[in-house]
Simulated scan of single mutants.
Amino acid sequence: MPVLKRHDPSSLWQVPEPFQAIYSHGVEVPSGARLLMISGQVGVDPEGKVADAFIPQCQQAMANVEAMLVAAGMQASDLVKVTYYLTHAADLADLTMLRQKRWASIRPPAVTTLVVSALARPEFLIEIEAMAATTDTYSGGD
């Protein structure tokens, strides 16, 4: 099966070194790959609790994305497009740190990060929407 291909052409601004493991300008998904579209995940744990600080909410939102990946027989390295919605620009440095610790990859996804005025509930500080793709087959399911 063909592999996913990252595109970072020299005709675009070069991704700074600290972001090279967490950002690609583009990702090409070959025909026949399995795609998983993950709805925006917020920092709500399985019991419905929401932390009141950015880092634990972000960690939970990432765990929720990872749970969806596992359910589809995928992993974080299969992420091809991630969109982050934050309610405070001051949290960007913490987001970068968490991404580097948890989702750094030699094949990073395409990424968009937006600072928005609000999310669906006032206590939500981050929402993560993602798309994953793999050329591996999977026979499981939930």
Rank of each mutant, 00 (worst) to 15 (best):
A67S: 09
A67V: 00
A67D: 08
G73F: 02
M68K: 02
M68V: 04
V80H: 05
L69R: 00
A71C: 03
A93T: 09
D91N: 14
R99A: 12
A93Y: 06
Y84C: 01
V82F: 02
I106E: 15
E66V: 01
R102G: 03
L92E: 04
R107G: 14
V80D: 05
I106T: 15
Q100H: 03
A93L: 04
A93Q: 08
T83C: 09
A71R: 03
L79I: 10
L69W: 01
A110S: 15
E66I: 02
R102Y: 03
L79N: 03
A67Q: 03
P109H: 11
L92H: 04
W103M: 09
A89M: 06
V70L: 12
L95Y: 02
A90C: 03
D78Y: 13
V80G: 03
A72S: 14
T96N: 02
K81Q: 11
P109G: 12
A76Q: 06
A67C: 10
M97H: 13
S105W: 01
V70M: 00
H88G: 06
K101C: 04
A104V: 10
D78V: 13
A90R: 11
K101F: 07
L98C: 06
M97R: 12
L92Y: 01
M68D: 11
M68G: 10
Q100P: 09
A71H: 00
L86M: 05
W103D: 00
Q75A: 15
A72R: 13
G73C: 07
K101S: 14
A93K: 08
M74Y: 13
Y85L: 08
A90F: 05
R107D: 15
L79Y: 09
A89D: 06
A110Q: 12
L86T: 07
A72I: 05
A76R: 09
T87M: 05
P109E: 06
T83Y: 05
A110H: 13
R107A: 15
V82E: 07
L86E: 00
L69D: 06
V70A: 07
D94L: 08
V70Q: 04
M97D: 09
L98W: 04
A89N: 12
I106Y: 15
L95W: 11
H88D: 15
T96A: 02
P108Q: 08
D94I: 01
H88L: 11
M97Y: 07
Q75I: 06
T96V: 11
L79G: 06
A89W: 04
V82T: 12
R107E: 15
V82Y: 11
L95M: 08
M68L: 11
S77T: 14
R107M: 13
A71E: 07
P109N: 10
P109A: 09
R107Y: 15
A93P: 00
Y84M: 08
M68A: 11
T96Y: 05
V82H: 01
V80W: 06
A90Q: 14
A76C: 11
Y84N: 10
M97G: 14
R99H: 13
L69P: 10
V80P: 11
A72T: 07
Y84T: 04
P109W: 10
G73Y: 03
